[in-house]
Amino acid sequence: MRRVVLAVPDEFAPFRQAARGLLAEAVPPHAIAWSEGEPDLFAGASAAPTSGGVGDRVGPAPDGPCAPPVAVPARFLPLAEEVIRHRAPERFALLYEALWRITQGERALLQVASDPLVHRLERMRRAVSHDAHRMTAFLRFREAGPNRFVAWYEPAHRVLRQVAPFFTGRFAAMHWAILTPDASLAWDGSAACFGPGVSRDAAPCEDALETWWQDYYRATFNPARANETALRRHIPRRFWRNLPEAETVPELLSQAGRRTAAMTSEKLRPVIKN
């Protein structure tokens, strides 16, 4: 049994290097035990945000022979780059199994979405992609000074690098930091700097504008349409504690029935002239 320890759990480059060596030696998937070591993302690393987070310079490469590149279909790379950010420990083994089958003659494997392995990888990719999208949606900045903003966020997967270009492109002229339990990202208006994870109390605990945002959230809700099931489907519970508007939800839902009844009460309906 070959043991492979990847020190950087969410970067494609170290995995690629390890996989090239194993494929060159024709080591079959069942003979490898993959595991992740301690994250060591921050050994002086600072990746340009436009790299999309695939910076080869980030993270130490694992030991091993410098194996030749393996020709794989173009769609493998974007799939693997996202799957590697998934937290499931089996992601390395699944990706290697796909590489193995592709290089053993199943060149078109990834086009067969109905294949159990491809199906599973695609579901993992979608989970990561969805999680990254949610981070762009549900992250909230709090003002920490003039033109300085800080956000605390808890992604399900390791998607900070994936969303970095979104935030640096949108809020380029602001100075801000995004803090997560795994990693952090600071932007000073010109360069992005990745750092270690921090705890929640490193982020500001309030922003004066949040009460305004809650006012807006209350006002834009139509009590006649209250539907808690639909709300929970769109915003699962785990996001609520970091969304300032979420604390208004119980009150809005509990009052919805009474407000709707008042609206439809006949006494309040003046006759309009024709």
Partner: peptide
């Protein structure tokens, strides 16, 4: 991008 959802499940994307 839907930045939030109202308690009726409708998307809140714009002010």
């Amino acid at each position: 991008i839907c930045h939030s959802y109202t308690p009726d499940g409708r998307c809140v994307s714009l002010l």
